[in-house]
Amino acid sequence: MALSREQIAMRVARELKDGFYVNLGIGIPTLVANYVPEGMEVMLQSENGLLGMGAFPTEDEIDADLINAGKQTVTTIAGASIFSSAESFAMIRGGHVDLTVLGAFEVDVQGNIASWMIPGKLIKGMGGAMDLVAGADNIIVTMTHASKHGESKLLERCSLPLTGAGCIKKVLTDLAWLEIEDGAFILRERAPGVSVEEIVSKTAGKLIVPDHVPEMQF
């Protein structure tokens, strides 16, 4: 069975370490915050200018002056700091964020990522995604392995305009956990009940399959 949104978030959460500063993109990445292991402290960075983002506010706590990068009302945790967007992207570009998790339309064996623009469709903009992928060393891309029509999104070469070049090393899809090394995807783990054959058939880019590919446990 393909991973659910929650299982994707749970699997990403296993990559967290105590004391990590983490930037979570909009969508599934946001859910990772729900699965921070007990006893571990991580601080969430929001690129509009907040480090130490807390939960959504209660009705009484809502403050129009306190939002996240998704423009949602949020709260701060004890020890949070707030700063300008220039300062925020200095942190991101300067490589100070320990882990970045974001979505994508396509990735390829060269570590390229396409996530912001589909030619012919209305282009809304890249927001902070280009800065995030260029600035972070440790990025996890979460995405579906193939389109609804079964076309692979893990390619030899991205077909869509790029968000960043050569910057992705880890990909978690609904079917598998993969790493990108030396021009190939390496299959590290598979979703429970998903066969290696299925993953091979849905991966268009060069894929290396080690002798043993463990099944993810939840």
Partner: peptide, 8 residues
């Protein structure tokens, strides 16, 4: 369109 950090 300009990346957010570049714009800042």
């Amino acid at each position: 369109l300009t990346p957010q950090g570049t714009l800042a």
